[in-house]
């Protein structure tokens, strides 16, 4: 594992911790898209089916379990916690995420490493992760004002993707036979979706003003 990959994983972990912190400290999930959170929970459940079949490292296994548990806990909290669920911006979170699900699954059936149950679900999880942030970005754009923790949550998610790209570039030059086009192309698409957000995040950071997205 190289430093970029590790930094990416830590950014991913940090984003989840920031989100948990926001929900617990403020007892509110305003500005957070339940649809995006549901998609992420599904991404991890579909991808880590290999927990039962392949062992890579203790690090990998622990991280997989952390991602599964934390993402399902966030969804549970937003849906079931008496206080938290009242702050959910349901009327703003209207992105039709079932289309993303259907399209990702159809693509996974067509483009995969191997036509097996596990590989199809792996490809599905990669495609779904690439677009899972869309409901969240749409929700932020609709609400206009973004609170600090929500802004940081999306920032760390984007940073995680950026480090994964550096990791792939590094692996491409240091490893023989490094070719994983499905993950790399999907990863590029996923990172590109954050470009707009990063631009406004940078502007607000530079001017030391509250993050505001244009309508």
């Amino acid at each position: 594992m190289n430093i970029f990959r590790f930094a990416g994983d830590m950014m991913h972990l940090t984003s989840i911790l920031v989100l948990l912190l926001k929900i617990y400290a403020t007892k509110s999930c305003s500005g957070i898209s339940l649809k995006t959170q549901e998609l992420y929970a599904l991404v991890f459940l579909a991808r880590y089916l290999d927990l039962f079949t392949d062992f890579i490292s203790v690090y990998n296994t622990i991280m997989k379990l952390v991602f599964i548990v934390s993402s399902t806990a966030i969804v549970w909290c937003m849906k079931r916690d008496r206080v938290v669920r009242r702050s959910y911006d349901k009327q703003l979170d209207t992105f039709r995420h079932y289309f993303l699900l259907a399209a990702s699954f159809a693509l996974a059936l067509l483009v995969n490493e191997k036509f097996t149950f596990q590989e199809i679900f792996w490809a599905f999880s990669i495609y779904l992760e690439a677009v899972a942030i869309l409901p969240q970005l749409v929700l932020l754009q609709r609400s206009g004002n973004v609170d600090n923790l929500t802004g940081q949550y999306v920032f760390f998610l984007g940073a995680y993707r950026a480090f994964y790209i550096l990791n792939w570039i590094y692996r491409y030059f240091t490893e023989t036979h490094f070719s994983r086009w499905i993950a790399c192309i999907s990863g590029l698409v996923q990172t590109a979706l954050y470009a707009d957000f990063f631009y406004y995040y940078y502007i607000s950071w530079k001017n030391n003003t509250k993050l505001k997205l244009p309508a």
């Binding site: 994983d9 990791n167 993950a183």
Partner: peptide, 10 residues
């Protein structure tokens, strides 16, 4: 795909 650790990323 023959690589045993093909899916070694998270």
């Amino acid at each position: 795909v023959s690589d045993r650790n093909y899916h070694d990323e998270l």
